[in-house]
Write a protein that binds this DNA or RNA. Structure first.
Length: 424
RNA sequence: GCGGGCGUCGCCAAGUGGUUAAGGCAGUGGCUUGUGGCGCCACCAUUCGGGGGUUCAAGUCCCCUCGCUCGCCCCA
């Protein structure tokens, strides 16, 4: 390509697409407002160490997907690959946790160096909720409910909530040992990817997409069986809370999370209407993270929604993207004096709250009227040489040919803010 | 990082080795020195993502490369 273009995996959102994003963002903001969840904005760039310590050195995200570079001060910096670590860092740094539980949300671009595909970009957008300092099982259900209700309100179809419990760190350690032993005993029957993962991340073998492996795993030790009594009890409370809220869910004993900080409740909301990247929302409890990043021991639960995938779902559901909104008034003018008057008229209309589009082409009136018609505006205002000389503006209705043109003194319109009233 | 599919005008899209690369939409100018929606006329890719090669001849065949796309991995 000779001409410049955006980097791979970095997508422009053109004007025809932004209305859907805006709608989605404003709906989310409203849901957060009602849930008394407040917005926090953190930098896109953080010290690399934050993610290494928070997400886990061994994870794929940290190991091979981060945009990391050395800055001019010799610091290792990383474009955030997710939001939770930054939010927790900020909460610790500013002592928010000393002020009681924090109910926070964030949104914005995240960066991961992956091969782009449907619903996955290198710069992608998430909106997420973090409830810090809440340990009760009902908090897990509350966090899930906020996500569920938001997605439902947006009209997303084919949703399914899957939940699992990852137990305590001790539970996972014990289970991991059992599972590795079992996998090694069945090494030869596993697919190549899964064999690889025995040493790198054995829990991930559980959600292998290989059908043979899945069949084999029916005989494997389960995470559920490895949970201690308290973990079981806690998970049961979460389920009861979801039932009380009448939020349908399915237990997925194979659901694990890719980031190291999760424990106890893990959940995903998927849609049958997406392709391979079916997860719209993922989250869970991360009671150890705050302490791991140097803060006070703090229980927490949160989730993130991938906006690209949500947009994919919504544009399917809503069909064609809405056309550009029509202006209330399209202003046509020709000649230096007329154009100055037209400019003032536009400004006046805008100050009165009207959507006003100005034709600045100076082209023949025929052309300007064609564009006025195409804009969808119900009214055209015409200021030509004659009108300018006489100090009037002609208002012409473009949708109803029965209506007479109106000739109004332009001075009155400008002085009295009567333009909006004239367009009735 | 690995696999499959695809790359002709801003968008859609003909073209299956042979003179000047269809057409539609959009755009621009005009028919109509100042009044739209319809219609008509004209203009709008010396070039087929880029670079090599085969051939008398390549958008059409081969190789490399870049990009897009779907999937694997991973994840939201």
């Amino acid at each position: 390509m000779a001409s410049l273009q955006s980097l791979r995996g970095m997508v422009d959102l053109l004007p025809e697409h932004t209305p859907l994003w805006q709608q989605l963002e404003s709906t989310a903001r409203e849901h957060f407002r009602r849930a008394a969840i407040r917005e926090i904005r953190t930098p896109l760039l953080e010290a690399t160490e934050l993610f290494a310590r928070g997400i886990g050195e061994a994870t794929d995200v940290v190991g091979k997907e981060m945009y990391t570079f050395i800055d001019r001060g010799d610091r290792s910096c990383t474009l955030r690959p997710e939001g939770t670590a930054s939010v927790v860092r900020a909460a610790i740094q500013h002592g928010l946790l000393a002020q009681g539980p924090q109910r926070l949300w964030y949104g914005g671009p995240m960066f991961r160096y992956e091969r782009p595909q449907a619903g996955r970009q290198r710069q992608f957008h998430q909106i997420g909720v973090e409830l810090l300092g809440v340990a009760d099982a009902t908090s897990d259900a509350e966090a899930i409910a906020v996500a569920w209700d938001l997605l439902a309100d947006l009209g997303v179809g084919g949703l399914q909530l899957e939940i699992n419990s990852l137990g305590t760190p001790e539970d996972r350690l014990r289970y991991r040992a059992e599972l590795v032993a079992w996998l090694e005993a069945h090494h030869d029957q596993l697919d190549a990817d899964s064999q690889q993962r025995i040493s790198t991340n054995p829990l991930r073998v559980l959600d292998s997409k290989n059908p043979d492996t899945q069949a084999l795993l029916a005989g494997a030790p389960t995470l559920a069986a490895a949970l201690c009594g308290d973990s079981h009890e806690r998970f049961s409370q979460v389920r009861q809370a979801l039932e009380a809220l009448q939020i349908p869910f399915v237990l997925n004993p194979r659901l694990v999370r890719g980031l190291d900080y999760y424990g106890h409740t893990a959940f995903e909301i998927t849609s049958s209407q997406l392709g391979a990247q079916a997860t719209v929302c993922g989250g869970g409890r991360y009671d150890g993270l705050v302490e791991q990043l140097g803060g006070p021991a703090t229980a927490a639960v949160g989730w993130a929604i991938g906006l690209e995938r949500l947009v994919l779902l919504l544009s399917q559901a809503q069909g064609a993207i809405a056309a550009a909104p029509a202006p209330d008034l399209y202003v046509i003018s020709r000649g230096a004096a007329a154009e100055r008057l037209a400019l003032a008229l536009c400004r006046q209309g805008r100050q009165a709250g009207l959507v006003v589009e100005r034709d600045a082409s100076g082209a023949a009136f025929g052309k300007q009227f064609k564009r006025a018609d195409k804009s969808g505006a119900p009214w055209a205002a015409v200021v030509g040489e004659q009108e300018a000389a006489e100090g009037v503006v002609v208002l012409k209705h473009l949708r109803d040919s029965e209506r007479q043109d109106r000739r109004l003194p332009i001075g009155d319109l400008l002085a009295q803010s009567s333009l909006a009233a004239a367009l009735q």
